[in-house]
Design a protein around this nucleic acid. Structure first.
Ligand SMILES: NC(=O)c1ccc[n+]([C@@H]2O[C@H](COP(=O)([O-])OP(=O)(O)OC[C@H]3O[C@@H](n4cnc5c(N)ncnc54)[C@H](O)[C@@H]3O)[C@@H](O)[C@H]2O)c1
Ligand SMILES: NC(=O)c1ccc[n+]([C@@H]2O[C@H](COP(=O)([O-])OP(=O)(O)OC[C@H]3O[C@@H](n4cnc5c(N)ncnc54)[C@H](O)[C@@H]3O)[C@@H](O)[C@H]2O)c1
Lengths: 217, 217
DNA sequence: TATGTTTTGTGATTTGTTTCACATTAACAA
DNA sequence: TTGTTAATGTGAAACAAATCACAAAACATA
């Protein structure tokens, strides 16, 4: 079982996503050159870290002129080698699934949700423009669009079953929004996004800060 | 500026959230005792790591009997010291905001969304049961419920403005779903949850695995 | 009460990541 | 040309996290 969690995916790559997101925005604002400190400032890391990260993946700038935004962007995208694999499906069109499926900015980042699925026949006709398929058509769509990555937004009870089915149909990467640890074969990658944990961690940090401050009083 | 990101919050705490989530489920299933390997198995870390994490926060089990589920849970919750700070507000009732506000499981984790806000007058009456307030009433609600933590789910353009306003009204922790790095004073904690990055990281990992495999062919 | 077994708890070690310090380079100005 | 400056690039050092290895405790059983 290979789980990508905060620790399992190279930290440097995680940061390179951050740089990429920022670069997309800078580029669309007409910024043609960026420096390690530009990226550092905008992503909250140090300039040395930015350079070291690029260094690790053989991305190089100009010793005085920094980096050319457009070519840096395409170098990062080449690193990701995104095009052949960016078709994604979404299973579970409840609250969260619907929110994700309506989000228009994914395509700007090269993420193309080609189809969505739900067991509930009522959900299957929620939006005609963005057709929701029954799970029976999973294999057909996965094959037709060469889908390798799926987003799971079903209740925790169903998550493992859905996961097994997807893997047996050729899915090799899963973004899992349900709060369970999915069991998958070694050749499948899972990223668990636990929104409760994200919120709890802030609540806790606020508490910790309060505590630390009170040490000085 | 204090940003909590993947690197800035203690890793051990991040894992303790995982254990907590699992414990909540085990406890509701009637499991009364857990061992370091139970938690390890269910969260994808090693048993030694689990013990070391608890050790770091002074949580101790019985040298043969493992940990009592219920008391472990309350020890973790005591560590979080959650009660005085768990009221949360949500700003931005678009796709994502609505999904979050409808999620029924937050309260089980001690996260209580006391009110939601949106500038759009149409959104303000979407659901009568879960009233959506205009931003003009932020201060009143923040004070009334002693809210210290807010979730931002507004478009990236508005995110910094909303953030500034919230901080000036006493908010000390922010979960930010917009893809911008918020600038906040040192005493405010920010957790950026970037869903695009989460999906992209899986796409990339799948690609990497393919690449590694092909080395053996 | 002695003995074996299971599981925790933790110092020591290894492994991984970030920061530091500075050599290197490109651009520009005089 | 020849400094001077503003950047990058990277080995070394410092730091942080994870794993290992085993002592200590608790319990069961005879
Ligand atoms: N909504 C949130 O804000 C939020 C927050 C944290 C975690 N989550 C987690 O995300 C997941 C989805 O949350 P939600 O609020 O959208 O839940 P939901 O109950 O609103 O939606 C789940 C959807 O999955 C569908 N479904 C169930 N079994 C299925 C199957 N086998 N195949 C296909 N579809 C199936 C259901 O018909 C339903 O439409 C849950 O695991 C939840 O715990 C959600
Ligand atoms: N929906 C997704 O799946 C998704 C995925 C990745 C990132 N995001 C990010 O999350 C954020 C929200 O996404 P969304 O899809 O819900 O957007 P959305 O446009 O559907 O909703 C944004 C809401 O915020 C409200 N708003 C705008 N300015 C406001 C202000 N100053 N005060 C209060 N409310 C205000 C708008 O009226 C709208 O209802 C965006 O920043 C988006 O980039 C969303």
């Amino acid at each position: 079982m290979k789980q990508i969690t905060k620790h399992n995916i190279r930290n440097s790559l995680r940061r390179i996503f951050l740089y990429h997101g920022l670069l997309v925005r800078l580029n669309s604002m007409g910024v043609t050159r960026v420096f390690s400190y530009t990226l550092a400032e905008g992503t909250g890391v140090t300039p040395e870290q930015v350079r070291k990260d690029f260094s690790e993946y053989g991305i190089r700038g100009n010793r005085r002129g920094g980096y050319i935004t457009a070519s840096l962007l395409s170098e990062i995208e080449a690193l990701f080698n995104r095009d052949w694999i960016s078709n994604v499906i979404l299973v579970g069109m409840g609250n969260l699934g619907q929110a994700l499926s309506k989000y228009g900015q994914f395509i700007k980042r090269g993420i193309n949700i080609v189809a969505t699925f739900d067991v509930d026949p009522y959900k299957q006709k929620v939006r005609a423009e963005n057709c929701v398929y029954p799970p029976g058509r999973l294999q057909e769509i996965i094959d037709r669009f060469s889908v390798k990555v799926a987003i799971i937004a079903v209740p925790d009870i169903s998550a493992q079953d859905v996961c097994n089915e997807l893997v047996s149909m050729g899915i090799r990467g899963i973004v899992n929004f349900s709060p369970v640890l999915l069991k998958v074969p070694v050749y499948v990658v899972v990223n668990n996004v636990n929104l409760c944990d994200e919120i709890e961690s802030v609540i806790l940090s606020v508490y910790r800060m309060k505590e630390e401050q009170s040490l000085f009083l």
